[in-house]
Design a protein around this nucleic acid. Structure first.
Lengths: 342, 342
DNA sequence: ACACGATATGTCACCGCTAACATGCGCGCC
DNA sequence: GGCGCGCATGTTAGCGGTGACATATCGTGT
């Protein structure tokens, strides 16, 4: 008892019991005052609020999660923050969570190690999230097992899947790749290249969509298909377009699977004196903020990242709370934004 | 009892007790096997690890935090993710935390409401973090009280303070502003403007540093000092430089307090036919990735954001664990990067 | 006047884990 | 051969909340 007392005072935290004693009620009444104000008389409620504020009481989520098996926290697994793409998604997620009084836990998995997603998940599952938002639909078996084992609801984001058991909000990367290929073909381009980096499943699906349409038209040339595993960045885009133009000088268009790469590619073309789009049309992907504001504004595919964050979170919260939803798979589509580069 | 049982099985989680029963030991042994492997016999340890894996056991951080008053979690309060500035800081933080087996909780405070930091802090304190990383050194009284009340160690990032009681890792925004002013004066500029947005304390300190030096030189003109509260962005930078040039056509240089604004400013100048730097020199701040890769690469101040994240986290962990540190205030400085725009 | 339901508050046990303090056991040593 | 000691493991009592159920209080209809 005495030991405990000192341990508690060591942490220095004000607890619900402290508030209860000060007000002269039992702890459960304080608990109710916060979670169900209607069940506590108005005078008591205001006194409890006042005392809590005065004492600096902050409810312990750890204790609450333990006792109620609800943490009011959702976990978002994101490949990277460096890539602005996911920042937009997070903004959408956060808005919906804030409104519902949930907290967001962000886990960054990175693109490099194949088991990173599993490790990050294991580390963060300890926080007992009430649900999980996943990026993409290509989780490893280990990840699926772990999530199912915990019985946690999940929603996938940023891609498209035919699987009946998945809840997702996104768009079809494959279809987007096809759309770009058709667009470039429609504009009379015949020697169309593909540049991609990072090679996550979504980028690859875009590449494949593009390749598919080019192949159908008999115009796919593996010599114009440049895919490297490095992280995508502006300088890498510059380097890759340089390489492409050197090995295939007659290339007249290129689908660059990420806008930062595409920005670098356009930059490099202007350095090198390659006219964009006349000599080489460049189409990017994602429509990042900066893409409209380059000396040659980028033709690109706009993805509804903010909306994906919002809708995926709405769906997840509905699942958690058992509210019926109109759909469990939401395709928010994409749109090709035509600007100067292609 | 029965009720409880069903509640537990409702959550479906595998607990330490489940593992213990399966192995045939008591829960505390399982606990020790994870936290202090040396205190458990090798055979038992490997059996416990094996069974845990097989059952899919994930320790509950909530329970652990409650029982041990240590959460192995640190909280980072960041104004915004949209601004790439802090993403770099987070990458640094995360690297150090990963190595030390700590988890990172990110709270995004936003720039808009003055009490947002307080509210976000309150919401996240419930996770019982072991320490806090704060952005800037200008926290409100309420925030300080709350943190002190919990007895939590903190380290401030991204600014500089003379206060003896603060631990911080950063650079002097005021000094950086002065350096820019001196640089532009040294290059013969006389009608020097200032453009800033967002108006967080750090931007303002940069502005003030710049103004100070200009005033000393007798060259400060409030008519060239444009500060707006809106979020910083490329289009806003374009708009502001337009406004500046309209109201003061003889302006020959401008310190733009954020690189994204500066990128927009340079873009707008090229649209408008204003020669950069001949007619108008533009100096940005932060040296974002894209700034080197514009048609007119940006002269800007490079801030060591990644290192700030790393060092601040090292310092915080040392404080938490009681390791002695060589310094409690680390000025990592900044450097003016000269490129084409100024 | 009294049973009855609605409302306000309390009691108790327990969520999953760990600090502190046992306990049991084998070993070396005088 | 008894003693003390170190090591491996167990017992107990919480950490700070909340669910389920109990109890007290009050107004209402008959």
């Amino acid at each position: 008892m005495q030991t405990r007392k000192s341990r508690a005072s060591f942490t220095g935290r004000v607890t619900m019991a402290d508030v209860a004693k000060e007000v002269g009620v039992s702890a459960i009444t304080v608990s109710r005052a916060f979670r169900a104000p209607g069940k506590v008389s108005p005078e008591l409620h205001s006194r409890i609020v006042e005392v809590s504020r005065r004492l600096g009481y902050v409810p312990s989520r750890a204790a609450s999660a333990l006792a109620s098996a609800r943490s009011m926290t959702i976990l978002a697994l994101i490949p990277s923050l460096t890539n602005n793409v996911f920042v937009d998604v997070l903004v959408g997620i956060k808005e919906v969570l804030d409104a519902a009084d949930y907290q967001m836990l962000i886990a960054i998995t990175g693109y490099d190690q194949p088991d990173a997603e599993e490790r990050m998940l294991r580390a963060h599952l300890g926080y007992v999230p009430d649900g999980i938002l996943l990026t993409g639909v290509d989780q490893s078996e280990a990840v699926r097992t772990m999530i199912d084992g915990q019985g946690l609801p999940t929603v996938h984001m940023m891609d498209h899947s035919d699987r009946e058991d998945l809840w997702w909000v996104g768009y079809s990367n494959a279809e987007a790749g096809r759309a770009v290929a058709r667009y470039l073909l429609g504009r009379g381009r015949r020697r169309i290249g593909i540049i991609a980096s990072q090679l996550d499943p979504r980028s690859l699906r875009r590449c494949e969509g593009c390749r598919e349409v080019l192949a159908e038209a008999g115009l796919y040339d593996p010599g114009l298909d440049l895919r490297v595993p490095d992280h995508s960045s502006i300088p890498l885009g510059a380097e890759l377009v340089e390489r492409l133009l050197n090995q295939a000088p007659d290339c007249d268009a290129v689908f660059v699977c990420n806008d930062d790469l595409a920005q670098g590619a356009v930059f490099q073309c202007s350095q090198r004196g390659v006219a964009v789009p006349d000599r080489l049309a460049v189409v990017g992907f994602h429509d990042l903020n900066a893409s409209a504001w380059a000396s040659t504004p980028l033709t690109t595919v706009r993805t509804p990242r903010y909306q994906i964050g919002r809708e995926a979170t709405r769906l997840l919260l509905a699942r958690i709370e058992g509210t019926p939803t109109s759909a469990r798979r939401i395709d928010l589509g994409f749109s090709l934004v035509r600007r100067a580069s292609g």
